[in-house]
């Protein structure tokens, strides 16, 4: 089963629940098998199967709830203020991975997934764009925003703890 462990990890991050994640992965494989004919040879298989999982998540109970509670932010390639955050960066260097895990959990799904696809799955911007069905420009801006909000989340936790 290709990408099984990685898909499960990704599903857990999306759902915050192992049972939900298992259902999601099972549904993904069922859909992938059934719809394999719709997969175009020569295109990216990984992006295709992650997209199935993500679409299944978005229409699941947990996914719909997340969509309601997390208001869609206005996305654009503009209004990316340049960062002058050397103090934050130093804080992040001192952060341990458990703190980062907590910060990741608190991020909105849209930020969490783009970070995971980029850093954990090491997908190219092109693959991420195909998986999330968004333009590459949006991948860039969303990724930048996600990284910044992660840094802010870590800083808040460090300040609070």
């Amino acid at each position: 089963m290709p990408h099984f462990d990685r898909l499960y990890n990704f599903a857990c991050w999306l759902t915050h629940d192992r049972h939900e994640a298992e259902d999601l992965v099972q549904e993904t494989y069922a859909k992938a098998l059934k719809g394999f004919s719709s997969f175009q040879l020569g295109t990216n298989f990984r992006a295709w199967i992650y997209r199935i999982l993500r679409n299944a998540f978005l229409t699941s109970r947990v996914g719909l709830k997340a969509a309601v509670t997390e208001p869609l932010e206005t996305e654009g390639e503009e209004n990316l203020p340049s960062e002058k955050e050397t103090p934050e960066s130093i804080l992040l260097q001192r952060a341990d991975w458990q703190l980062v895990q907590e910060a990741l959990e608190r991020l909105p799904v849209a930020h969490r997934e783009v970070l995971l696809l980029c850093e954990v799955e090491e997908m190219s911007y092109q693959e991420i764009a195909a998986t999330l069905a968004i333009p590459i420009g949006t991948v860039l801006s969303r990724l930048a925003r996600a990284r910044r909000s992660l840094r802010e989340a870590v800083r808040k936790m460090q300040g609070g703890g």
Binding site: D5, W13, V25, S89, L116, V120
Partner: peptide, 29 residues
Amino acid sequence: SRVQQKRLVQAAGRRFTPNPAFRARIEQS
């Protein structure tokens, strides 16, 4: 700093592993 962030997220992100029973169930399905 950004490289370290990338590495931290990568390490933190690899967090969940499926249990063997679940793997077996999917394989059977």
